[in-house]
């Protein structure tokens, strides 16, 4: 279960790192948001509505875990497109956080993930 989720996260991380702009919009029922429409045309986005909802819940949880006021989290996430949320869901710990702080990126970890994803290594094999 966790491994599968981790694998999907890797795929999302790598594919979404290629997408620089935010896409998709949770619009009224029956209406496809413009950002989503653009993404579909550009074939950059293969997430469905279910993954989008999961990603939002994931980011919400992570942000609260990182000390963001739960009362603020909802409005913060609502200001993001689904693609931005999906990117954050996989990168919130590693994405640049400007603040004059000392930030350490787990380079080794990232390299391992990429190698795993590209099939060079297979250390996260399912039991």
């Amino acid at each position: 279960m966790h491994v599968e989720r981790f694998r999907r996260s890797c795929v999302a991380l790598i594919s979404l790192s290629l997408v620089s702009l935010g896409l998709q919009a949770p619009a009224a029922a029956g209406i496809v948001g413009t950002a989503d429409a653009v993404a579909a045309v550009q074939q950059q986005d293969h997430r469905g509505a279910v993954q989008d909802v999961l990603a939002r819940a994931d980011v919400r949880e992570q942000m609260v875990g990182l000390g963001v006021d739960p009362a603020e989290v909802e409005a913060r996430i609502a200001a993001l497109t689904d693609a931005e949320v999906a990117t954050l869901a996989t990168r919130i710990e590693g994405a640049p956080a400007g603040g004059d702080a000392l930030v350490v990126i787990g380079i080794v970890f990232v390299v391992l993930m990429i190698l795993e994803f590209t099939g060079v290594i297979d250390i996260f094999k399912k039991a």
Binding site: G65, L66, V68, I92, A97, G99
Partner: peptide, 8 residues
């Protein structure tokens, strides 16, 4: 984001 000491 307090846990990241910065903003994304």
């Amino acid at each position: 984001i307090p846990g990241r000491l910065g903003s994304l």
